[in-house]
């Protein structure tokens, strides 16, 4: 499988990365080189093989469903580019 310029622009939109016409053209070549490289996986017989879901076989750790952390709103917004009274500020989303 390979990608064309339109697909690259669509994927960039999905990934929320602005790309210029020039970027998109360059990326088309690079992505196709990588997709060409991974193509060889199709020759592997995977019939009856489960996909890996856990690297180490282990029980999912669970804990009591209680509050263990919190009351640190100031810490959470401390690194934000724009805040007001412990809220993140963003451009208007809803008219």
């Amino acid at each position: 499988m390979s990608v064309d310029l339109q697909t690259v622009k669509r994927v960039a939109r999905l990934a929320r990365i602005a790309v210029s016409e020039e970027d998109a053209e360059r990326m088309t070549g690079e992505l196709n080189a990588i997709l060409g490289f991974v193509e060889q996986l199709n020759e592997v017989d995977v019939s009856g093989v489960e996909p890996m879901t856990s690297v180490t076989p282990m029980e999912m750790k669970k804990r009591q469903d209680v509050v263990t952390d919190g009351s640190k709103a100031a810490d959470i917004v401390a690194n934000a580019p724009a805040t007001e009274e412990n809220f993140f500020l963003v451009p208007k989303v809803v008219e």
Partner: peptide
């Protein structure tokens, strides 16, 4: 995404802000 930490590049709306920040 330019909201919670790090770089933010302004845009005309939130999607453009995301896209320009990440670009």
């Amino acid at each position: 995404d330019g909201v919670r930490y790090g770089l933010r590049v302004p845009g005309k709306d939130i999607v453009e802000m995301y896209e320009k920040t990440r670009a």
